[in-house]
Design a binder for these strands. Structure first.
Lengths: 208, 208, 208, 208
DNA sequence: CGTTAAACGAGACGGTACGTCATGTCTTCGA
DNA sequence: TCGAAGACATGACGTACCGTCTCGTTTAACG
C-alpha cells in the first residue's frame, strides 16, 4: 500500500490553538484519501473539489479551509500518498541504490497513482508556491536518502569520487523515469534492471 | 525559433476533398500559433479555447471543428511547435548523439514552451487517443533519428553492440530530462555536458 | 386539407427573367411544405432553417435566397398553408357569417397548425416588415369576405346599419378566437355555435 | 405602473427550508424585473438569459437555478408584472364588467409589455408545463373576478340567466382582445366602448 | 457549567469556461 | 447563374466548477 500517514504538519496549520471548535483531524485524512482516489481514477485534469468533498463526506468549504486551491490539495494528496523511500543496507551501496531505483519505479508504474505524478509536477513547474511544498516534502527526503547511499558508495570505493551525488541520482533514476513517464514504454523489472545495471557502469570507477 | 510548419497532415484530416467550401489552411496555422503562444504564456491548465480562438481571430466553433477538445488542440499545438531533431554528422556518432541531447534540452529548457511539455505528456499518459498523435508525430521521429545515430555508433565501434538502441536513448536523454522536468534544477550547458559525458561511459565498449 | 397553393406571387420575387439558370419553383413548394410541417410539429420557437432545408432536401443558402430570415419564412409558410375563406351564400347573410366563423375556428383548432398561428402573430406584432405580408395576404382577404357578408346582411335587414363592418367582425370572430387561443379551453362545434348565436343578438336590429 | 409583487409562491419553490444558505429573495425580484424590462424592450423572441442575468446583476446559473428555461422565466415574469384585475362596484354589474374590460385592454395596449403577452401565450399553448402556471396565476384569478361580476349581474337582472359566465367573458373580452392582438388595429377608448356596448346587448335579457 | 468562537454540512452566489447549436454570410464545386 | 455542401464569425444555449459567502447546527475549550 502506498499511503503513508507520517507527515506531521497539519494541513492548514491553524496554530492559534484558539477558542472555537478544533479541527477534526479525521477530516484531513478523509479528504486527502478521497483526493488520492480520485486522482488515481480520473487524473489531475478531471479532479474537482466538489467530487473530493462529496466522496470524503464533507462540505466544500471544509476542503478550502485547509487547502486554498485545487492544486494545493492535489500536491498535498500526492505527498500524503507516496511512501518515503527506505533504502536497504546490504553493504553494497550501489546495489542498494539500484535496488531502490528499480523498486521505486516498478512499484509506482504499477500503481494507478503513477500517471498522476507527472501532472502534478507539471503544475508545480510553473508555480513556485506549489513547487515548494512538493520539493520540501517529496523530493528532498528522497534526495537525502540517495545522497546518503552515494556517500556510502564512495566510502566503499564503488562510486567515483569526482561525480556529484545529484549527478549519480540523475544517472540512475533518470533513464527509468524517462522511459516510464515520457516514452510510455513499459518498465517491467527486467527492463529496469537492464537500465540501472548499464547506468552503474557510468558511475563506477574507471578501469583506466 | 521553435515553430516549424513541416507537418503535412492536415488538422481535422478532412480528406474527402468534398463538395462544400474547403477549409482555410490559414486558419489551422493561426489557431495553432495562438495556442502555442498562450501555452507558453499561461501554461496548459490556464489554456482556454475562447482565448485561442479570439487571438487567432476565429470563432470558437471553428476551433472545435478541427480539434474536438482542448487537450487535442494542445497536443497538436505542441507537435506543431517543436522543431524536428536534426543530428549533426561529424563522424563521431556518440559525440553527435550527446550534442543532440544537450542541444535539445538546453534549447527547450530556455524556451517558454518548455514547461508546457510536461503537462501535455501528463494528459497524454491517461488518454490513448491523445497519446497516439503525440507518439506518432513527436516521439517516433525523434526516436528514428536517435536509432540511426546509435546504429552509426555501433558501426564506428563506439557503442557496445549488446545494448538496444532504446536503452541508449534512455541513458543519454533520461538524466537530462529528469533533472530538467522533475527536479526542477537548472540545466545549463555545463551540467548537461557533465551528465551526458558520464552517461556515455555507460554505453562505451568496456576496457575488459 | 389546409394547404393551398393559390398564392401567385413567387417567393423571393426575382422578376428579372435574367440570364442565368432559372429558379426551380418546385424548391419553393418543398421548402414551404417542410416549414409548415415543422411548424406544426414543433412550433415557431423550435423552427430551424437547418431542419427546414434538410427536410426539403435543399441547402440552407437556397432557403435564405428566397426568404431572408426565419421569421419571413414562417410567415409565408403560414400564408401558404391556410386556405382562403369562402363564404356560403344561402340567402341568410348572418347565418352565413356565423357558419363561416364556426367552421373556420373549429377547423383551425383541430389542425396541428392552429397553435402556430398565435406565435406568428406575436412575432409580426413587433415587426412591421413581417406584419405587412401577413396583413396583406392573410388578414385582408378574410376581411374582404367578411365585409361583403356584412354588406349583404345589411341589405337583408339582418344587421343594424349603425355598426361598422369591422365591429361586426370583431364581435363574431373575437369571442371564438379569444376562447380558443387565449383561454385554451376547447372550442367544439356546440360551444362555437353558442358563442356566435349569442353574438348575433348584438348585431341584430333592436326590437325597439 | 404594472408591476405587482403580490405573488407569494417563491420562484423555484424550494419549500424545504433546507439546510444550506437560503435563496436571496431580492434576486428573484431583480431577475423578474430585468426580464420584464427586456421583454418590453425587445420582445419574447429576442429575450436572452444572458442579458437578463447581466441586467439583474446576477450570474447566469443563478437564473437557471430558479427557472429552468427561458420560457419559464418569461411566463413568470409576465405573471409577476401584470397587476391583478380589480373590479369597481357601482351597483351596475354589467357597467362594471365593461369598464373592467375596456380599462384592461386600453391599459395593456398602451403598455410596452402588451405586445409580449401574445408571444408568451403562444409558447404556453404547446407546453402544458408552461401553460399551467400561466393559467393558475394569471387566467384563473381574472376569471374569478369576472365570474363574480357576472353573478352580480344576474342578481341585478342585467344578464340573461341562461348564458354561462365564461360565455359572457368571451363575448365581452373576446372582441377587444381580438382586435388588439390579432388584427393589430388600434384600440382606443372610443373603439373599446363601442365594442363592449354592442356586446352587452348580446347578454342583456331580451325584450321578447 | 454555561458562553462563545470556531468548525462543519449544506447550498446559494457571481464568475468563467465548457462544448453544442443555430443564424446568416461566404466560398467552392458541379449542373 | 443556380443549387448543394459546408466553412465561417457570431453569439446564446444550458452545464459544470470555481472559490466565496451565508445559513443553522455541533463541539470543544475558556471563563
Amino acid at each position: 500500500m502506498l499511503v503513508s500517514d507520517e507527515h506531521k504538519s497539519e494541513a492548514g496549520s491553524r496554530q492559534g490553538r484558539g477558542r472555537g471548535r478544533p479541527r477534526n483531524a479525521e477530516v484531513d485524512r478523509a479528504v486527502l484519501a478521497a483526493a488520492v482516489d480520485l486522482l488515481a481514477e480520473h487524473g489531475f485534469g478531471q479532479l474537482t473539489v466538489e467530487a473530493v468533498a462529496s466522496r470524503a463526506g464533507v462540505g466544500r468549504p471544509t476542503v478550502y479551509r485547509r487547502w486554498p486551491t485545487k492544486e494545493d490539495l492535489a500536491v498535498h494528496a500526492l505527498i500524503h500518498s507516496v511512501p518515503p523511500l527506505t533504502a536497504p543496507d546490504t553493504g553494497d551501496a550501489v546495489g542498494d541504490l539500484c535496488e531502490l531505483a528499480v523498486g521505486f519505479v516498478t512499484e509506482l508504474s504499477n500503481s494507478p497513482l503513477g500517471s498522476v505524478v507527472l501532472g502534478v509536477h507539471a503544475e508545480c513547474g510553473r508555480r513556485p508556491e506549489l513547487g515548494n511544498p512538493l520539493r520540501e516534502h517529496y523530493l528532498q527526503p528522497r534526495d537525502a536518502v540517495i545522497t546518503d547511499l552515494v556517500e556510502r558508495g564512495r566510502r566503499e570505493g564503488a562510486i567515483r569520487p569526482d561525480i556529484p551525488a545529484d549527478t549519480v541520482r540523475d544517472l540512475v533514476f533518470g533513464p527509468l523515469i524517462y522511459r516510464w513517464l515520457i516514452t510510455g514504454e513499459p518498465v517491467d523489472r527486467a527492463t529496469a534492471e537492464l537500465l540501472v545495471s548499464t547506468a552503474r557502469r557510468a558511475v563506477a570507477p574507471g578501469e583506466r
